[in-house]
Each structure stands twice: as structure tokens, then as C-alpha cells.
Design a protein around this nucleic acid. Structure first.
Lengths: 229, 229
DNA sequence: CCGGACCGTCACGGACCCGTAACATTGCGT
DNA sequence: ACGCAATGTTACGGGTCCGTGACGGTCCGG
């Protein structure tokens, strides 16, 4: 539960307030009061979470977030943005840019802690190279092998990455766009329906093990990996 | 708890009275004595609450409220209306228009403060994707799963959003128009009776868990989610 | 150069869901 | 008790979303 958190905030008072509370909650704190400094810290320390003030001198919070998202090493670091007003516009821009949540000033320490906790919990399943086991499925990223109920399963590269992602983020609905981002990679221009086809191929490959119903459709939303049966 | 409040009132004496009291309570005050002026302030300052006299020269309070509700940026700003008469008609019109509460003149400062406090506290709970539990129902936005008394429940997309909204705003009556706004989205042209049908479908889906009576009808007003039984 | 593996797209058909109307029922005022 | 209005309930047509098979293209290794 203890995490390294970077706070990017130019007002010393607010930064102190945040830092105090998060230290109380058992986190390690890093501080920056502008985007350049923050960028440097991110590159070297790779924090688990960034608390980002939306209004910054020099490079804005929006731009900073965009740069984080552009780099493969930092793209999955969650961002909580701090915004002065509860303006709908900011929220939209923020969420589009890739912020995971937002907190409007003024905020209570309790609220801040709750959000931080939620975001960290949400990102909990870290992508590792460990063997993933779930619901009778075994997937080994190192050897690139998959087996269902002991029987080996043959998968193409894309289906493998797809299954890997789904298994490491189970019990959670992923939109086709999210799957394209996470499995195909950013900035690829591929029809969303393509996801359907690969889901189909994945299911077909899981059929012999009668594990194909682990991959479930949530109509109007996306796909989900069930953890049981 | 400190909030920015806009007072729209044409009688200087009453405006002063209100302003004095609310400043004492620690709020930031904005004042307007007609609707045009008020509209301008709202657009630029985005207050947290509007105290609105129902009888105004020029554009009436009703019309002003309607305009607030028409704009996406201002539609969720709560409104407390001040009405001279305690006539049932005014209350109904007001609540239909989207006022959150009303205070009838003459009122005591104590009552006014109480109402303001209540409305601010009541402000829409922030939408998070945390699991919602209530009265035996579990709803998980992330995995898009619902269960009642442990048994899984199948819902269509609309019923899911409907139940989600009701569970996050329980013990409160929602008119059909409000439900259409919140669940269907803005600017959709859908018959209000459609809400009835989806309520029906939701109840039917909850029947197997004998939780269907959690969704209650308030005749002449709308629907409400009960927190118990 | 050829063939296989893999991928992205498309088209078709079916399943599902939604909005509406029409009818049945309930609740409330008189 | 009666009648009106509000709500419950059901059925249906249309539209959207999704599963599925097929097709052409690309990339490599032989």
C-alpha cells in the first residue's frame, strides 16, 4: 500500500498540506513546483503516482501530462489532477489527456487520501514477467507459453498479448479503445472491430479447454476477463 | 464548507440581510438584483449555489432557473428559491424547474443558513468507480457486475446506468426528467414514459433477489431508491 | 519465388436492446 | 362509488451491437 508519490504544485502552502497528509498515510513523497523539475524527477525516480496541479507556471499541467503519456516508460503512471474550479471543461480535457481522476480545490485531506487510495488500488496489478495463473489458465511471459487445464494452447502474438493483458487486469471491463491502446500500442490506426476478431480467435483457441467463457462480452462497453470458471 | 454563493434578489433590504448572514457563516458572496446581471455573473464566476428570488423584474426567476438548467456548465449548480407565498403552485413549478429547495419569506437567518448548509452538503456525490453497496445490492462499475444478496444479476446497459445512478443518489426522489438527464444524457429526445419501462425492467431483474421493492414510486413526482429492505 | 502464418477489414446474420404505443391497473379526489 | 390521471405491464418494430466466416495483404523462411 505504501507508494512513491510525486506532487507537482507551485503553491508552497498547498504542497505542504498534501505532503503532510500523504506522509501520514505512509507514502514516500517527492516534490516539484514546476513541470521541468517534475519531468526530471519522473524520469529518474519513476513514482507510482503523480499528483498534478492543473495550473502551473511555464509548462502547463496539460502539457506535462501529455508528455508523460508520450513516453513508454512513464505512460502508465497514474495521474490525479488538482483543479481549482470544478469546471466541466477542465475535467474533460484532463480525462482525455489521460488523467485517472481529479480533485477540485478546496479539498479535504480525507477526500485526497481516498482518491489516492482508489487510484493505487485500481492500478494494483502491476505488469510483471511472472507467470500468471487465473481460472485454470497458465501464462508464462518468459517462455511465451500458455496452457489451459494442463493442455498446451497455441496462440498468435497478438492473441498472446491480448490474453496476457486480460489476465493481468481481470474483473474489469475494457473498451475496445483501451484494448487497442494497451495491447496494440498507442497511435496505431486500427479499426475497433478488429478487437472483436482477435477476441474471437482467442476464444476459439481456448475452446478445447472449455475455458472460452472466461472471456466475456459486456454489451455496449467492451470485454472482460472473468476470474472464475 | 466555505462556498461561493450568488444571491439574486431585487429588494436591497432583503439582499443585505441575506448577504450579512451568509458572510457570517463564512461564505463568499456575489450579488445581483436582476436576472440578466445574474446570468453574466454565473457564466464567469460559476458559484457553488444560487439563492434565487422567485419574483424578479424583467426575466422571472423561473425563466432564469430554466436557463441555468439548459447550459451544460451550469446545470448542476444547486438552486434555492425564495418565494413570498407558500403556495403549492410555486413550489411545484420550482421543483420542476430544478430548484433544490425553497425558502418562504419571511424566513429566519437560522433557517436560511440551515437550508444552505443542507444543499451544499447534499451536492451530488462525486462520481467514482468504487463499488457501491446498498441494501443487499452490490454494483461494481469497473467489472460492470451487479449482484443482489450474493446472486449475480444480469442488466442491460441502460438499466445498469439507471441502477448505478439510483444507488449513488439514494433516499431522494428523482423526476423522470432528472433521470433522463442523468442516465440518458443531455439533449436526448425521449418520452418520459420510457423511464417507467426501464424502471419496470430493472425491478423485474431485481425480483429474483426479492430486492425489487428497493425501487419505489413516488406518485406524481418520480422514483426513489430506498436504502433499506 | 513460393507458401504459410498472421493480421486487418468487411459483410452478413442474428441476438440483444431500446423507445413507443396500447392496454391494464392502481391511486386519489370528489 | 365513480372518473380521471398516473403508473404498471406487455408486446412489437426498428436499430444497434456483436459473432462469425471469408478475403486479401504482408512478412518471412525455405
Amino acid at each position: 500500500m505504501a507508494a512513491t508519490i510525486l506532487v507537482v504544485e507551485d503553491e508552497p502552502a498547498i504542497q505542504e498540506l498534501i505532503a503532510y497528509n500523504l506522509k501520514q498515510a505512509g507514502h514516500n513523497l517527492l516534490k516539484a513546483d514546476n513541470a521541468e523539475q517534475a519531468m526530471h524527477i519522473v524520469q529518474t525516480a519513476l513514482p507510482d503516482l503523480v499528483l498534478l496541479d492543473w495550473m502551473l507556471p511555464g509548462i502547463s499541467g496539460v502539457e506535462f501530462a501529455r508528455r508523460l503519456r508520450a513516453d513508454r516508460r512513464t505512460k502508465q503512471i497514474p495521474i490525479i489532477m488538482l483543479t481549482a474550479r470544478s469546471e466541466e471543461q477542465d475535467k474533460l480535457t484532463g480525462l482525455e489527456t489521460g488523467a485517472d481522476d481529479y480533485v477540485t480545490k478546496p479539498f479535504s485531506p480525507r477526500e485526497l487520501n481516498a482518491r489516492v487510495k482508489a487510484v493505487l488500488r485500481r492500478r494494483a496489478p502491476q505488469v510483471t514477467d511472472d507467470v500468471v495463473r487465473l481460472g485454470g489458465l497458465d501464462l508464462d511471459p518468459a517462455s511465451h507459453r500458455v496452457s489451459g487445464n494442463g493442455q498446451p494452447i497455441e496462440l498468435g502474438p497478438t492473441e498472446f498479448r491480448l490474453l496476457h493483458f486480460l489476465m493481468t487486469h481481470p474483473e474489469r471491463v475494457h473498451s475496445r479503445a483501451q484494448l487497442l491502446d494497451q495491447v496494440w500500442g498507442d497511435h496505431v490506426f486500427v479499426e475497433e472491430r478488429t478487437v472483436d476478431v482477435h477476441i474471437r480467435r482467442l476464444r476459439k483457441a481456448l475452446e478445447p479447454s472449455t475455458l472460452d467463457n472466461l472471456v466475456q462480452t459486456v454489451r455496449g462497453t467492451g470485454y472482460r476477463m472473468s476470474a472464475t470458471l
